[in-house]
């Protein structure tokens, strides 16, 4: 069995150390080693966006990043978004717009929307649709998701 590597990284603002095999993806590390299961595996090849996290400010599919690559970097996951007593405005907007049904894609969509609003606080509907095209949702038809992101942008 392959020897594990020691990795030190920052996750949701906290310094985290973990051991992982070099073949383990960031998604596997988050879920299996750190028990941060908010990022989901839908396809494991970068097509569905359910595992979206933000790595050093950039939106990535965590299934396409190796755990060892996060050494010295900063990872934001869905678990770090809400404050102890308050949801993030995007989370509120998803709830108010009923922008989720089964909810499996929701953490990925919310992280993706956050990455969008971090760099473009007032996106048009088309810009939202273009940005979120890397996230698949099979339940909603996207209507309410797009509205939620428009609302979250307006609320900021």
């Amino acid at each position: 069995m392959a020897r594990k590597s020691h990795v030190q990284t920052t996750i949701n603002g906290e310094t985290v150390e973990f051991l992982c095999e070099s073949r383990q993806s960031l998604l596997e590390v988050l879920r299996d080693e750190l028990h941060l299961t908010g990022a989901k595996e839908g396809c494991n090849n970068g097509n569905c966006g359910a595992c979206s996290v933000i790595l050093d400010g950039r939106l990535v599919n965590s299934c396409l990043v190796l755990g060892v690559e996060t050494e010295g970097k900063s990872v934001e996951t869905i678990e770090g978004l809400a404050e102890p007593d308050k949801l993030h405005p995007i989370q509120d907007a998803f709830l108010e717009n009923a922008a989720l049904q089964c909810g499996i894609c929701t953490p990925g969509f919310i992280m993706s929307a956050k990455a969008l609003l971090d760099q473009n606080p007032n996106p048009t509907e088309h810009e939202i649709r273009y940005w979120l095209a890397g996230n698949l949702c099979r339940c909603t038809g996207y209507d309410k998701i797009v509205r939620a992101v428009l609302d979250a942008a307006a609320a900021k």
Binding site: K40, T77, G103
Partner: peptide, 13 residues
């Protein structure tokens, strides 16, 4: 809803 927008909801996997 809150469990599902915060990533706390536990799915099978």
């Amino acid at each position: 809803g809150v469990d599902k927008v915060t990533g706390r909801a536990l799915y099978g996997a």
